[in-house]
Design a binder for these strands. Structure first.
Lengths: 140, 140
DNA sequence: AGAAATTTGTCCGTATGTATC
DNA sequence: AGATACATACGGACAAATTTC
C-alpha cells in the first residue's frame, strides 16, 4: 500500500477518533482502550501506526499505557456537560486533607480540599471510582 | 540482528549519548545534530530507533526538529520555566477498601483495590491529584 | 506454582510522501 | 530540477510484563 497522507496523516485521524470516544464517554476514564491488535483490525492500519496514534493521546494526557496490560483512558478535563453517559455519576464535596494529601499540596493537615468524584457503573456494578483533589481557593 | 535490550533499550542509550553531547557543548545550542542517516551509520541502528531516541530529546526540550531541515540542539534551561510544562507523575498501588469504597463496590471492607494516582504539578506546586479505584480481580 | 495466552515494548528493513536546500 | 532530510506507513520478529488457566 502506498503512503498518501494528504492533509491529515493516518495516525492523527485515528488519534482523533479515539479522542472523541474518550471525551464523549464511550470509553470512560479508567477503563481500557481496545488492544493494539483490535485497533489494527478495526482501522486496517499497521501496529506501528496504531501505536503512533496512542502516543498522541498519551502526550495529551488522555491515555496511559501499561506494559502487558493495556492502555487506560485517563480522566480528562470535563467541560460543562448537560447530557451525561447514563452510567456516570458525579458529585463534588469538601474534605479535610489528611497527612498524605496535605503533604502533596504543601498545606497543613485539615486544610479544606475540593474533591470531585465520578463513579462509573456497568451492568449495575461499580467499575471505577475516580476522585480528584484540588486546593480550595486557588487562583486559576 | 535479534532484539536483546537487556537493561537499557537501545534508543535510550543513544538518547543518553546525544544528550551528553548537547549538555557538554559538543553540539552547541542552535546547531544541527547529525542527520538521521548519519546517526544510523554511527550507531549502526535502524532509522526508526534513531528517531525514537531523538523523540526522547524533544520531549525533554533538548532538541527541536524541522521537516526537511534537521534537528537543532536547544539551549538547555534546567531551571523551572514559568507556566506551561505541567509535570505529571503517576503511580499504581494496592490499597485496602475502607467502608465507603467497599460499599460503592459492593465488597467487604478491607478488600484489595487497585489505586491509580496522578499528580499534576505546575510551577512547582501541586495543582491536582487524581485517584481512580477499581476492583483487583478480573476485568470487564 | 507453573505453563500458556495475551498485550505492550523494542528493533529491523523497506518504501514512499513532503519539505527544504 | 535535483539532492538532501525528515514524516508516514507497512510488515515481521523477538523481548518483557501481566493475566489466565
Amino acid at each position: 500500500m502506498p503512503t498518501p497522507h494528504y492533509g491529515q496523516p493516518r495516525y492523527r485521524a485515528i488519534a482523533a477518533e479515539l479522542r472523541q470516544r474518550i471525551e464523549s464517554g464511550a470509553i470512560p476514564p479508567g477503563t481500557l482502550l481496545p488492544t493494539e491488535g483490535a485497533l489494527t483490525a478495526e482501522f486496517r492500519a499497521s501496529r506501528g501506526t496504531i501505536r503512533q496514534a496512542i502516543a498522541v493521546l498519551r502526550e495529551e494526557g488522555l491515555a496511559s499505557t501499561e506494559h502487558g496490560r493495556g492502555t487506560y483512558a485517563m480522566p480528562h478535563a470535563r467541560l460543562p456537560e448537560s447530557g451525561k453517559p447514563s452510567d456516570l455519576e458525579t458529585r463534588k464535596r469538601e474534605v479535610a486533607a489528611n497527612e498524605e494529601l496535605a503533604s502533596l499540596f504543601g498545606v497543613e493537615a485539615g486544610e479544606t480540599l475540593i474533591e470531585h468524584e465520578s463513579i462509573t457503573r456497568r451492568d449495575g456494578r461499580t467499575e471505577i471510582v475516580v476522585r480528584s483533589y484540588r486546593i480550595h481557593q486557588s487562583r486559576q
